[in-house]
Write a protein that binds this DNA or RNA. Structure first.
Lengths: 342, 342
DNA sequence: CTGAAAGCGCTAACAA
DNA sequence: TTGTTAGCGCTTTCAG
């Protein structure tokens, strides 16, 4: 039997509008899609009917009919460090804000590596880093879903990414300390499962090398980006007999913790210990000693990623993949000065 | 003319699977939906075909056909304070994690008040607070979309909410300070456009009243939850001739800033100034003086909200709205002690 | 400029 | 158990 439409509890459909307006559904469709080829007379009849019935087109049906979903999925690896800070929220803020402007639906996936996500609902995917999301990444690649990776450089001719020049940023920071006269420079690194942390570490090493400063393993301490581990790292670093006179810290929130620890241990900032962070987190501004840091354009990166994805989704042109690396900027404030004369 | 299916560039559909497996589409549908009434023989034939073609059902079509979208929208007001902290990330973490478990798609909307969101794509909505989202809220209510509000208590028989007992939490905190012997207790409040901040302020006043401690307006400073304003507030408070010996601060991140300012101004914590925060932000643990604070169950609130919404979406039962207020817990650590003897 | 009708890919009656 | 087929609500030819 024909499935009778239960008149009750049914949402108004395009057909209802057509009937009330006295036109065909095709015309209604044309009006709601703003196609030019509709007589003003009809256009306004439809508009009235729409208003009267408070009609809202079914997004689902539109998507099925057009084959375009206008939805992008933001895939975020769910590892602890992700939640410590600034980074994720900035990303979400950047992408989320732009999505509203572009009328794109934003689907958020916090995945662990094992999750299988059916990406067929989305017309594009943004991977926020791809730690542990390699499988999902390969899947998207295989299915040729438009895709952009953020904050992670990846080989391959088909992969679009927008990343940040962490190595250069780190190198600049350390070079700045060297220029100030420091020779004993430590590094508190982030979680090296992230490429960003790895690259900052490399940048640090690179800068030392260029300046012929020997690398001391005991001057390098790896953390998970948490303030807890930053505290331990700072304590360890400052307890060294021949402690560093400066330290480059992989994130501002950790840098602030280091600053706190140093003060507790009786060190002056920047007199006894110079500190340079990374992020340009506004929190760094408020302390008694404003934090010198490396600004990375997180929101910009996120938004460029989305823009790139959007054009991938809309222009069928099969352009070559774009690989963008954004520059950082050293923000000089108060927490790094020349070392005390020996 | 019949639109011919372009054999090329088409994704495999249920029909392809049916053909290859030698069964009807209905049977394939039954298999992918795990209905019991399929012979093992056929089930495995279908399974093979699915594997061979790498078939993934179109979520869009499923949703259109069933009328269930299995998507919830999380609507977040886009005002600055929202991004300062802990709160939003915890919410997203809670909801996002549970969504993955429940196989629910999470749609994120960062809206400002003017945005019109077409909620017909989602089968349910969670409002994370409703500052400035009143319009969207009314819209959802009118359209009878299953809805839950988080962190904001609202009148009305149809509104489900999960909130936190901010007033009681604040009162407990202040009562604790009173019990320690403090009489001069200040309050640095959050952004009073949020109900939460408002209620904490009320709780503070209530506690003073109960203890017959006169209210001093100059002991109360309102902020936007940012560390910058917390700093100014702390400075102002400590400059008062007859400065408070204790202060209740509306968020931990602000409390940490207050602690820093106090130290800079030569005050001992908790000797000269006792501090109680709000949030139980892990950052509060790491300083030299662990922060006494009020723990609020953010993740739990988020997840209860989603669970409630989920049952609203699935059980057609028209139960009465649930209004839940979760208790807080005072976490006693090191930053509040009896005042120095006068 | 408009309308009829064939899809989009799936689900769920209903009949067999 | 299975297959047939009418929808789900919209878009988009194609013919008029």
């Amino acid at each position: 039997m024909v499935r009778t439409k239960k008149a009750s509890s049914r949402v108004v459909s395009i057909e209802d509008v057509a009937r009330l307006a006295g036109v065909s559904v095709a015309t209604v469709s044309r009006v709601i899609n703003k196609l030019p080829s509709v007589k003003d007379k009809n256009r306004s009849k439809v508009a009235d009917a729409v208003k009267q019935l408070d009609f809202q087109p079914s997004i689902l049906a539109q998507r099925l009919a057009t084959g375009r979903s206008n939805t992008v999925a933001l895939v975020v690896p769910r590892y602890e460090g992700m939640f410590y800070s600034f980074y994720l929220l900035e990303l979400i803020r950047g992408i989320g804000t732009l999505c509203e402007v572009l009328k794109i639906d934003l689907l958020l996936h916090l995945t662990d590596s094992s999750a299988i996500l059916n990406l067929r609902g989305a017309s594009g995917v943004i991977f926020a880093d791809i730690i542990g999301n390699r499988k999902q990444f390969d899947e998207a690649l295989k299915n040729r879903i438009p895709m952009v990776v953020i904050n992670h450089c990846i080989e391959g001719p088909e992969v679009n990414y927008i990343a940040i020049d962490n190595a250069k940023g780190a190198e600049d920071a350390v070079q700045y300390l060297v220029n100030l006269g420091h020779k004993k420079i430590g590094h508190i690194s982030g979680d090296v499962i992230t490429q960003a942390a790895m690259q900052r570490l490399e940048g640090y090493k690179q800068a030392l090398k260029k300046n012929n400063i020997p690398l001391r393993e005991d001057y390098i301490i790896k953390t998970d980006y948490s303030r807890g581990q930053a505290r331990q790292a700072a304590e360890a670093l400052l307890k060294i007999q021949d402690a560093p006179t400066a330290v480059f810290v992989a994130s501002d929130s950790m840098a602030l913790e280091v600053m706190a620890v140093a003060k507790e241990m009786g060190r002056n900032i920047p007199g006894d210990l110079s500190i340079v962070g990374f992020d340009d987190n506004p929190s760094g501004l408020y302390g008694p000693v404003a934090l010198t840091t490396v600004r990375q354009p997180l929101v910009k990166m996120a938004q460029m990623g989305l823009e790139r994805l959007n054009s991938l989704m809309n222009d069928k042109k099969n352009e070559a993949a774009k690989k963008v690396v954004l520059p950082t900027e050293l923000i000089i404030r108060e927490s790094a000065k020349p070392p005390a004369a020996v």
